[in-house]
Nucleic acid binder design. Structure first.
Lengths: 143, 143
DNA sequence: TTCCTTGCAAAACTTTTGCATTAAA
DNA sequence: TTTAATGCAAAAGTTTTGCAAGGAA
């Protein structure tokens, strides 16, 4: 029940997931994974770097970017392009969609069953659908 | 039927649309608008700058960016965040969606009637839907 | 004249890369 | 020991900004 026991569990799970992907579980990678994969969330590279350093970790910016790209290429995390200013890294790699609150910039997961398509266009000849990115932009209610 | 008559028509339409928005139609703005609004397309700032300079126009990079941001803020064009590496400016401001060909990077418009949602999640309390960004990623067909 | 726009260069920001050092197997 | 990962700094790419010069009303 203690925080350390809980984070040890998180770290252990992360190491297992890395091992399954053939990713060597170095100290920095485990810390980055433990931070990002502990719960469903969306973080930027800069947020991850700041958070790790605030908690006393010795990590470089290059390693954060290298690691996030490595994780994304192995399907451990998902990179999102929502606002164009920076990349967001999503710990939830299961298919899902997003609300994007324009006022706060917050991203909120939308589960697949909450969206249903009754019609979709056929992909152009020679191509097939790789995935669907759906972002529902939100503004403050006027009324 | 000549190219010059046609481009004069495009320029005139662009000036009219700018006037409707209260945007002063300077020479650079008309050229940028004529290039982008002549047909439905998706261009980057760099492509627009290169194209204008190739056709002999004297325009600076700052003016291209300033103008595109101005147009977007007045609803004359739409800014897209598809791949995170750069912004794409869409001459089509009517509601529509996109195919994104991962192999070529091409963006293809998908008309609204080609997509039908039979279920959508209710927006969180205090918010309302501002718009829906839908990108259907395409890969080369395996079979 | 007065205000707005432009161009240029520099700055700001995010992300990538080269290379020497360090850590892991 | 051998290979791969890290840190640092510099570079690269996109976009913004400060400011002097130019143009429109």
């Amino acid at each position: 029940m203690s925080a350390s026991a809980s984070s040890e569990t998180v770290a252990a799970r992360c190491q297992q997931r890395m091992a399954d992907c053939g990713i060597r579980p170095t100290a920095q990678r485990v810390r980055i994974a433990s931070l990002l994969l502990s719960e469903p969330q969306h973080l930027s590279a800069e947020q991850i770097l700041a958070s790790l350093r605030a908690s006393g970790a010795r990590v470089s910016k290059a390693t954060v970017y290298n690691t996030l790209n490595l994780f994304a290429s192995h399907g451990l995390i998902r990179q999102l392009s929502v606002d164009g200013t920076r990349a967001w890294f999503d710990s939830n790699v299961d298919a899902h969609y997003h609300f994007h609150d324009l006022a706060s910039g917050a991203l909120i997961d939308v589960p697949v069953p909450d969206v249903e398509f009754s019609r979709l266009p056929p992909p152009p000849p020679g191509t097939e659908v790789d995935g669907i990115d759906l972002v529902i932009r939100l503004r403050k209610k006027a009324s």
